[in-house]
């Protein structure tokens, strides 16, 4: 690790000032990603500003029937929270599918959303990587691509965003509360992460020094059911190959497979948690047969580019969306 100074921030404004005022300063939350990167030499900050002492650890009811989750809340807490389990099962399930119990006690809401890609080349400082070292090239293209993106990638970067939580928040239409040097702002969750384009070094739209203080969930649509299905190389403690966050409002008509509203977000396929708006449109007001689901996923994947290493993701995504929507419509659980 390169030398750095350590400061413990006592209020959000001074944390923002400390990081905003120094280009090589970073926020430290649980440390489960940042400390790893300090060891690997991926992160070489001159100053580390610890934000775990800030009072951002509450889960509070919002005025509109929603919920506000503080940036410092540890991942295990919303997963165990009765309100989350009842109203936002997709959120509880996404958290419980992530990392390990120990890591979930350590990881914070904000740290989870702002964790960096697990692309092996990003983590290996001996290889070229445009995200770590702009202009050096992308080793993943034509290299180890099993975890690479198939949607929204660019010739500069095929990294995927590793967070499960982010995929659930994307489908829940959450917003992010951010404090910067000029005050507080709120952004829709879909505007937090960005596609790589020709500047993969930036994962998000946040400016340097902007502190995430909370995530806000609107009340779920009346009658909504939701779930999260994640496929991995082993049963637990592994990142997603693909994952699906799904929300379904069944129609009043007789067949449980008739959908009034469907929302879908995909993990493991892009640099951002991918909201599958084309598939959603195709499935809204439709009977959720396997054929209809496959066609909708294929429509979403029309823009996808796969390679030898990622070709499997098409079929896996179809199967995972089927499993998620079957669970929500008929209650039959085929994958977990």
């Amino acid at each position: 690790m390169t030398p750095f100074t350590y400061t413990r921030a006592h209020d959000p404004a001074s944390a923002v000032a400390a990081v905003a005022g120094r280009p090589d300063a970073v926020f430290l939350a649980g440390g489960s990603n940042l400390v790893d990167h300090l060891k690997l030499g991926v992160a070489t900050p001159g100053e580390v500003v610890d934000v775990t002492g800030l009072a951002l650890t509450g889960i509070e009811d919002g005025s509109d029937g929603g919920l506000r989750i503080g940036a410092g809340v540890r991942n295990s807490d919303p997963a165990a929270d009765a309100r989350v389990r009842e109203r936002y099962p997709v959120l509880a399930r996404a958290l419980l599918a992530g990392a390990s119990p120990q890591i979930r006690h350590q990881a914070s809401t904000a740290g989870n959303l702002l964790q960096r890609t697990r692309c092996v080349y990003f983590q290996d400082t001996t290889t070229p990587c445009n995200k770590r070292e702009p202009g050096s090239g992308c080793s993943a293209i034509g290299g180890y691509e099993r975890y690479a993106a198939i949607l929204g990638a660019s010739p500069a970067c095929v990294a995927t965003h590793p967070s499960d939580l982010a995929v659930a928040l994307r489908v829940l239409d959450a917003s992010v509360v951010v404090l910067g040097p000029d005050g507080e702002r709120r952004l829709p969750f879909g505007e937090l992460h960005r596609l790589p384009g020709d500047d993969p070094s930036r994962d998000t739209t946040l400016a340097h020094g902007e502190l995430v203080t909370a995530v806000e969930l609107p009340a779920p649509p009346p009658g909504a059911r939701s779930t999260y299905v994640k496929v991995r190389d082993r049963a637990s403690y592994a990142f997603a190959l693909v994952s699906v966050a799904a929300l379904l409002v069944p129609s009043d008509a007789g067949d449980p497979r008739d959908a009034a509203q469907v929302r879908l977000a995909f993990g493991g396929v892009a640099h951002v948690p991918w909201r599958a708006t084309r598939a959603e449109e195709a499935l809204t007001g439709v009977r959720l047969t396997d054929e209809a689901i496959d066609a909708a996923v294929e429509l979403e994947l029309e823009a996808a580019t796969t390679s030898e290493g990622t070709a499997y993701k098409r079929a896996m995504l179809r199967g995972t969306v089927r499993a998620a929507l079957r669970e929500l419509s008929t209650g039959e659980r085929t994958l977990r």
């Binding site: 350590y6 413990r8 430290l28 649980g30 489960s32 400390v35 119990p101 120990q102 006690h105 350590q106």
Partner: peptide
């Protein structure tokens, strides 16, 4: 893994100073 302030927790990815 240890029990840290009442919860099971890794110690390899935590800075002691924190």
């Amino acid at each position: 893994t240890v029990i840290l302030d009442g919860r099971r927790h890794l110690t390899c990815l935590s800075l002691a100073v924190a």
